[in-house]
Every structure is written in structure tokens, then in C-alpha cells.
């Protein structure tokens, strides 16, 4: 498909990332078409979270570049919504649900500008969408895992972005929340948004996503789920075919230290 560059939500070229000089991702090339629900799948330590963090510049790239809607990330960061892993924040933090969702609006506010009434309205709407509006005034530590995840999702919705990056949104949530989340993601998709979801559960990956990205240190396959979800591809991703690569890359890391 040939789209004008600015319509490609995410383009990644030859991205390599190293953690403490130990390579985690290696030469990733990718162009994500708009309006898809994409699962990022791979074994533990395959660099799934690293991948989406690197897209947003949270981790430095050791090579390659990233473009979001045809521009470097920093210039288009407003068009990206992010759902971090739930454990990444301190849930004893003195804020309530509403405060957290309002944070989704901060990217649109100037330095020192306060959230307006309109921002509050958007935040309320987003909370309503995840059925959390009755909890708006509750301290975030007093929520269940599933509720916390919904709050994070509402916050991402409040960012009103075109590309969403979600890090393991299904971990530690109850079945009701899981189905609520997937309904929401599908709705986002029908509205033309692009959603990338780091996912660790192979069995549900097939049903949830229309495209899959198989990742194990490097991109093994990327394409529509029926094409990619084959035993051969999964074998490559989860099996040991890339052992030389990881061994060599390991010595590369050790050597520079």
C-alpha cells in the first residue's frame, strides 16, 4: 500500500536499542498501516516493552530512527497516547482517579497552564467510557488491579491521540475488565486510530488483534494475524533459531563495557 508519508502512523527504520550496553532490540524495520489493532507478541525478555519505550524516546536508540505520522517523535508526540505498565507507578501517590485522567490532557496544555473546564469534561467522558466515572474522586491506591488499568486506559483516551501504545494492559486484570478493554480497543480502531498493544498471552492474541508483530530481539514477522500466526513463525519467535544472533550480540554488549 502506498500512502503519503504523513499518513503512516509509525515508521521504524533499523532500530537498535541497548540496555546497559546490552542489546535488546536489533535492526527493527517496520511501517505500521493506519486503523489497525496490532499485537506485539514474543517471549519474555524479547524487548516488547523496550520497543514501545524506544519509539517514544524513553530509551535512547543505538541506531536507526523512528517517525510518527511522518515526523520525528518529539514533533508529533501529541498524536501518541501511552499506557505504561501498571507497576511502573506508585499507586500510593496522593492523587485521585480524576487527577490521573486529567494528566492525559497535560500534553495539550502550555507550561503553567491549568486544565480548563473543557479538559475536565473530556476526562469525565473518558472515565464514563471505561465505566469508572463513579470512582472519579477515589484515591488510586484504593482500586483493584482491573480498575487501575481502566483508569490508565481512560487517561490514554483523554490524550485524544491517533496512535496508541499500550504496555501489557491485560496483565493482572479480571475477565470483565479484559473484555471491556478489548471492546474499547476495537472501537478505537473503527474510529481510525492505530493501537499497538504489548501482549504476552499467545492464546488470546489470535482473537484480539487484526495484525501481529512477532518480536524476539528482532522483528520475526509482521502482518495480518492469519498470515503471521503460523506454527512456523511462532517456532522462529519462541524457538532457538536466533541463538547465534543473541550470542554474538551478547559479546558485543560485553565487549563495549
Amino acid at each position: 500500500m502506498t500512502l503519503p508519508l504523513s499518513d503512516v502512523p509509525l515508521e521504524v527504520h533499523d532500530m537498535s536499542v541497548a540496555y546497559h550496553q546490552k542489546p535488546v532490540l536489533y535492526g527493527i524495520d517496520l511501517a505500521v498501516p493506519a486503523g489497525n489493532l496490532i499485537g506485539i507478541v514474543g517471549p519474555n525478555g524479547a524487548g516488547k516493552s523496550t520497543f514501545i519505550k524506544a519509539i517514544m524516546g524513553l530509551l535512547p536508540l543505538s541506531s536507526g530512527w523512528v517517525k510518527v505520522f511522518g515526523k520525528p517523535y518529539a514533533e508529533n508526540c501529541r498524536r501518541v497516547g501511552y499506557v505504561p505498565q501498571r507497576e511502573s507507578v506508585d499507586w500510593d501517590f496522593p492523587v485521585n482517579v480524576m487527577d490521573v485522567v486529567l494528566m492525559g490532557r497535560y500534553g495539550r496544555l502550555r507550561l503553567g497552564q491549568r486544565p480548563s473546564r473543557q479538559d475536565h469534561d473530556v476526562a469525565r467522558e473518558c472515565l464514563e467510557k471505561v465505566h469508572m466515572l463513579p470512582y472519579a474522586k477515589r484515591q488510586i491506591g484504593n482500586l483493584s488491579g482491573g480498575q487501575q488499568q481502566r483508569v490508565f486506559l481512560a487517561r490514554a483516551l483523554a490524550q485524544e491521540s491517533d496512535l496508541y501504545l499500550m504496555d501489557e494492559p491485560f496483565v493482572g486484570v479480571d475477565a470483565a475488565t479484559e473484555s471491556a478493554i478489548i471492546t474499547l480497543l476495537r472501537e478505537l480502531k473503527t474510529r481510525g486510530k492505530t493501537v499497538l498493544v504489548v501482549h504476552h498471552d499467545l492464546s488470546s492474541a489470535r482473537d484480539y488483534f487484526d495484525m501481529l508483530m512477532l518480536l524476539n530481539m528482532r522483528l520475526v514477522a509482521f502482518g495480518p494475524t492469519p498470515e503471521v500466526f503460523t506454527s512456523e513463525m511462532l517456532q522462529t519467535t519462541y524457538g532457538g533459531r536466533l541463538t547465534i544472533l543473541s550470542e554474538v550480540v551478547e559479546t558485543l554488549g560485553g565487549g563495549t563495557k
Partner: peptide, 21 residues
């Protein structure tokens, strides 16, 4: 083995060539 695009392998090989045992 690793499904790399042909135009991407050169830079990488430039680094690896010095450390392959």
C-alpha cells in the same frame, strides 16, 4: 537466518566483524 533486508545488513556487519570469534 534473521530475515534482514539487504540494505540494512552492511552497517551492522561493520560492527560485528571486529568481534566475531
Amino acid at each position: 537466518a534473521a530475515n534482514y533486508a539487504l540494505d540494512h545488513v552492511h552497517e551492522d556487519a561493520d560492527k560485528i566483524e571486529h568481534i566475531l570469534g
